[in-house]
Simulated assay, not measured.
Amino acid sequence: MSVQTVFAPRASAPDWLWHVGVAGFLALWWLAYGQLLPVSEWVVALTSLDRNSHSGEALAFFVYDVPKVLLLLTLVVFVTGVLRSWFSPEKTRAMLAGRREALGYPLAATLGVMTPFCLCSSVPLFIGFVSAGVPLGVTFSFLIAGPMVGPVGLGLLLGLVGWEVTLAYLAVGFTIATVAGWAIGRMKLEGWLQDWVRELHAGPPPEIAQRALTMADRYRIGLEQVREIVGKVWPWVVGGIAVGAAIHGYVPHELMARIMGSEAWWSVPAAVGVGVPMYTNTAGIIPIVEALLGKGAALGTTLAFMMSVIALSLPEMVILRQVLTLRLIGVFVGVVAAGILAVGFLFNAIF
Rank of each mutant, 00 (worst) to 15 (best):
S2Q: 13
A13Y: 07
H19S: 07
L26N: 05
V39I: 15
V39H: 05
E41Q: 15
W42Y: 08
A45R: 15
L46C: 08
S53H: 07
H54S: 12
E57L: 13
A58F: 01
A60S: 13
A60C: 04
F61N: 05
F62S: 00
Y64C: 01
V66G: 01
K68F: 01
K68A: 08
L73V: 00
L75S: 03
V76N: 02
V77L: 11
V79T: 10
T80M: 15
R84H: 14
S85Q: 14
R93T: 04
R93M: 08
A97E: 15
G98D: 06
G98P: 10
G98W: 08
R99C: 04
A102Y: 11
G104Q: 05
A109Q: 01
A109G: 08
T110C: 14
M114Y: 03
F117D: 04
F117A: 04
P124W: 09
F126I: 04
I127H: 04
A132G: 10
G133Q: 10
V138G: 00
A145K: 07
M148I: 09
M148K: 03
V149R: 11
G150L: 03
L158V: 03
L160A: 04
T166L: 10
A177V: 09
V179I: 15
G181H: 05
R186H: 09
K188L: 00
L193F: 02
D195T: 11
W196C: 03
R198D: 01
E199P: 02
H201C: 00
E207Q: 13
I208V: 15
L213K: 15
I221F: 12
G222P: 11
L223C: 11
V230C: 13
G231W: 11
W236T: 07
W236I: 02
G239A: 13
A245C: 07
H248V: 01
Y250T: 00
V251W: 13
M256G: 14
R258V: 07
A264W: 13
W266K: 08
A270P: 02
V274S: 05
V276N: 02
Y279E: 00
A283G: 15
G284W: 10
G284Y: 10
I285D: 04
A291R: 15
A291Y: 15
A291G: 14
L292R: 03
L292Q: 12
A297Y: 05
T302V: 12
V318E: 00
R321M: 09
V323G: 01
L328P: 05
L328V: 03
F332Q: 08
V333P: 01
L341T: 00
